[in-house]
Design a protein around this nucleic acid. Structure first.
Lengths: 143, 143
DNA sequence: CAGGCTTATTAGCTAAGCTAATAAGCGTGA
DNA sequence: TCACGCTTATTAGCTTAGCTAATAAGCCTG
């Protein structure tokens, strides 16, 4: 039974579940062709407002050069805009454009439809278990 | 309370938890060692016994050419071995080698330090919830 | 105001994923 | 029976995402 799982078994089982479900989520691709990474960065900008590349890379737990690439892709698509920092000539402020906000909403809706559909297949008790676990997993991910 | 979460809230919360945890897990990759993808494939072979590349790609929710690369990396390290299929000349059977099994055991004890540490911070009841949810999430990912 | 720190970017590498194309083997139906 | 179509595995070539090291520009301080 699950109840008797050792800590090692639980760790392995959870890692596998996360990895596989994340792969499945990633396959739920877009309308706007946004990757998960791009979506996540754009979401951070929407939540955090105008951020510098460094702040964004820290929010996304990614190195600055990696964020440079992600930002370049979002910029190509016109989903974010950059303005000079008011007091520091080295820095740049990134914000989602109106188009970026619109694409973000579309993408999230499409992807959530898939996941919501899968969750609807569960029993009420199972959904309750997932709901409790989701809150715990968020806590784990929050370092 | 979590118990009263709407389906929309649950969907969003779960998606967020999955993507965050996955990114966090990926960062914990130890230097010079197996990637999460490689570890996941090797684990599938241990659980599933001798599988063909196609079966393994389906278990991992990945396209066959992608699995060819993953298998090649595991083979380079001597972690899996291949034998001809007894009745079908096209197919190949993949199994973890003794060394592969040993590596998996090491990982169970050492590899997921971060995740195991986080799980250890939970109460026994919370871990039980996570364990039940992990099984459900695997089912969701299985289409 | 020179030199050291910070920020952002560029260059170059690896891993992980995809599709399209190919070669080999299997199996079936005319 | 054997030609043709399907399946399996691989190769080729692309994209994305991540890393470190190096570089250029701007800031700040002694």
């Amino acid at each position: 039974m699950v109840a008797q799982a050792t800590p090692e078994e639980l760790t392995e089982r959870l890692r596998d579940a996360i990895t596989r479900l994340n792969r499945r989520l990633r396959q739920e691709r877009p309308v706007g062709d946004l990757t998960v990474t791009q979506l996540s960065a754009l979401t951070s900008l929407r939540i955090g407002g105008a951020l510098t590349p460094r702040e964004l890379s820290e929010a996304e737990r990614v190195q600055p050069p990696t964020m440079t690439k992600i930002v370049a892709k979002l910029e190509e698509r016109g989903l974010i805009s950059r303005t000079p920092h008011p007091t520091d000539g080295r820095q740049v402020l990134l914000s989602p454009s109106d188009q970026g906000l619109a694409v973000l909403e579309d993408y999230q809706r499409v992807r959530d439809e898939w996941l919501a559909g899968k969750l609807a297949e569960l029993t009420a008790v199972e959904r309750e278990t997932v709901a409790r676990a989701a809150a715990l997993l968020e806590r784990l991910a929050r370092d």
